[in-house]
């Protein structure tokens, strides 16, 4: 599994380029490594090709992290980005940020900084 690490601005361009090529979005995976939150985007070229992975690393600073949304480019990312926002307590621009969880539950998958 090879991962390309990109910045948030580059991710927008990558998403636009892949969208034009007819690529499908599989999902968005968040991971809390302690002091950063890694957001991985999985794409599947269609009709054939190998799956591609892009990763955005967001440094943690007290719950005010911001992630650029790709929902305007890929409508399929809507649920995944909402889940990312509610599970890790990050702010994804342009989505409400609540889908599965009740409002009383706050960022269950977020870990304390070591």
């Amino acid at each position: 599994m090879d991962v390309k690490t990109v910045t948030q601005q580059e991710m927008q361009d990558v998403a636009r380029r892949l969208r034009a090529a007819g690529t499908r979005l599989i999902t968005i995976v968040g991971y809390d490594s302690g002091d950063t939150i890694q957001v991985s985007y999985f794409f599947q070229p269609f009709p054939e090709g190998k799956a591609e992975t892009y990763r955005v690393v967001v440094p943690k600073h007290g719950g005010n992290e911001e992630v650029e949304s790709i929902t305007p480019i890929f409508p399929a990312a809507y649920i995944a980005e909402n889940e990312l926002a509610e599970m890790f307590g990050v702010h994804v621009k342009g989505v409400p940020g609540r889908f599965f969880l009740h409002e009383s539950i706050n960022a269950p998958l977020r870990r304390k900084a070591p």
């Binding site: 599989i26 999902t27 995976v29 968040g30 991971y31 409508p75 399929a76 809507y78 649920i79 995944a80």
Partner: peptide, 15 residues
Amino acid sequence: MDRIKVRTSTYGNGP
């Protein structure tokens, strides 16, 4: 395990 993410098929069909 450190992290397991499950993305099911209805999750993809939901929108």
